[in-house]
């Protein structure tokens, strides 16, 4: 039996008086890739931001058996949770190398130099462009840099918010392949996607979010065949 790296129980998040998440529960077993899919406004990004601690929420968040309540975002990073946000939030006017170096900020020791080489091995494009400013990279390269920066923090739980956003299909394929590799290296991944078929293809399990609630859930393979999922995307 695998234990859960992250457990979300009855999570509620509000923007002012409007509730964006109303009672979401989900489990992310250690070593798995779990997908959360849903339309715009379903609450996917809100879910990621609540887990990360960017947004205040009520309900339980249990990571490695410990509650995350009251723990600020920066401490969650130090405890091994990394988020690659939808907007990537790179340091646009700093070099690729600086962006990656800063990824290791929460690890006080100097041992990150080896990890830097490792990221360059994984994304050779970043090595070529290490002196370039992050803001001048193409969309796909920026996404690689955002993932690379998150990996520099040696996360045990990686949160990926729509990594395919605005990218060409070939690049999306590359990025999802890398996510799969990371799983093989022992990183647990919570992946938010609109690109339902592709993300379920690499996932172990999945959840479909609609207007702040979990509508469907189950093993990824079953979910991908579920006619309701196709219906909610193409109205057919």
């Amino acid at each position: 039996m695998t234990s859960n790296l992250l457990e979300v129980r009855d999570l509620h998040t509000r923007y002012g008086r409007v509730e964006a998440l109303s009672g979401v529960s989900l489990e992310v077993p250690a070593g798995h890739i779990v997908s959360v899919i849903g339309a715009n406004g379903a609450g996917k990004t809100t879910l990621m931001n609540s887990v990360m601690g960017i947004l205040p929420s009520t309900g339980e968040l249990i990571y490695e058996g410990q509650p995350l309540r009251g723990i600020p975002l920066e401490t969650r990073v130090a405890r091994g949770i990394s988020l690659v946000p939808e907007r990537r939030d790179l340091f646009a006017s700093m070099s690729v190398a600086d962006n990656l170096t800063l990824g290791a900020y929460s690890r006080r020791q100097q041992k990150w130099r080896g990890d830097l080489d490792h990221v360059y091995e994984r994304f050779s494009r970043l090595l070529e462009r290490r002196k370039q400013l992050a803001g001048t990279l193409s969309g796909g390269e920026q996404q690689m840099l955002a993932i690379g920066r998150a990996l520099m923090g040696k996360p045990r739980l990686l949160l990926l918010d729509e990594p395919s956003l605005g990218l060409a299909p070939l690049i999306v394929r590359d990025i999802l392949r890398i996510v799969k590799q990371l799983q093989a290296e022992g990183v647990t991944v919570l992946l938010v996607e609109q690109n339902a078929r592709a993300s379920l293809a690499i996932s172990d399990s999945g959840y479909v979010l609609e207007t702040g609630e979990v509508k469907l859930s189950g093993p990824a393979r079953e979910l991908a065949q579920n006619p309701e999922l196709t219906a909610s995307y193409l109205g057919g």
């Binding site: 600020p72 990073v77 939030d89 790179l90 929460s106 920066r149």
Partner: peptide
């Protein structure tokens, strides 16, 4: 936000 995400408070 990017800075907070790498752990800079």
């Amino acid at each position: 936000l990017g800075a907070r995400l790498v752990g800079i408070s």
